[in-house]
């Protein structure tokens, strides 16, 4: 288990990281990026697996099973949708530079 203050530092630094990543993003990428971050919180699947792995009563197992189902849906669906969106971003031949 993580110590209270270490966790607080992790929370803080991760929040700044997320803020920095988004801060200078061209509008063109807002939808794919929202979809991409939707995929990243699919990591909830790992937590759901742990919850189901530690469940012992039928009720807890039921809850865990539903959580894993939903988490797997979040991860897989988020990936497919984001990939399909980004597949379409073909840089034009003339100007390969970024456009804000």
């Amino acid at each position: 288990m993580i110590d209270g203050f270490v966790a607080l530092y992790i929370f803080m630094l991760a929040a700044f990281t997320g803020h920095e990543i988004i801060a200078r993003v061209p509008v063109i990428l807002h939808t794919p990026l929202m979809s991409g971050s939707n995929f990243v919180h699919g990591i909830v699947l790992v937590g759901a697996m742990i919850a189901l792995g530690h469940a012992s009563t039928p009720f807890e197992i039921g809850l865990g099973f539903v959580a894993v189902l939903l988490g797997a849906g979040n991860a897989a669906g988020g990936y497919v949708v984001t990939e399909r969106m980004l597949e379409m971003f073909k840089p034009s031949a003339g100007k390969p530079g970024d456009k804000a």
Binding site: I2, T17, I22, G47
Partner: peptide, 23 residues
């Protein structure tokens, strides 16, 4: 993620939480 002691969940969740709020 904090409850489960899982750092990957904390980091990924928090990054998305902050990025999503800004977005």
């Amino acid at each position: 993620g904090y409850v489960l002691g899982n750092e990957a969940m904390i980091i990924a969740g928090m990054v998305v939480g902050a990025a999503g709020t800004l977005l």
